[in-house]
């Protein structure tokens, strides 16, 4: 699973370079996220701009990735495409993440 990470001071941007987070890749996604977010940046921005499909197992894996950050660290989501955004809204899970239109907006919010 291709996921890349860049740090900007106290903020880490983690970009999913694939177009699906579904049952076929959830284990790989969780493992990769655990390894990548092992640091101590306060903010982690998960860039989903290339992802055009998630199912409920993908949603669960994103929640698990957020929980792994632990206390005092914040997960932001950025660049949700309409199909992805819909899954968050239907399940009301949009209420537990900070969601931004783009990575730039998320960076401004995290560092501002």
């Amino acid at each position: 699973m291709q996921i890349i990470s860049n740090n900007f001071g106290d903020t880490q941007v983690v970009s999913v370079e694939e177009n699906r987070i579904d049952a076929a890749v959830v284990i790989a996604f969780k493992d990769r996220m655990r390894a990548l977010t092992d640091g101590d940046t306060t903010h982690v921005i998960l860039d989903l701009s290339r992802v055009n499909f998630i199912d409920s197992s993908g949603l669960g894996a994103i929640v698990a990735a957020m929980k792994q950050l632990g206390r005092g660290r914040v997960m932001h989501l950025a660049g949700l495409q309409p199909n992805v955004d819909k899954v968050f809204r239907l399940t009301r899970m949009d209420t537990i993440f900070r969601i931004h239109d783009s990575v730039d907006q998320a960076l401004a919010a995290a560092t501002g």
Partner: peptide, 14 residues
């Protein structure tokens, strides 16, 4: 969708 301990599944049939 409780923020203190959000669920990681259980949405399929919903």
């Amino acid at each position: 969708a409780r923020s203190d301990n959000p669920p990681e599944g259980g949405w399929g049939w919903f």
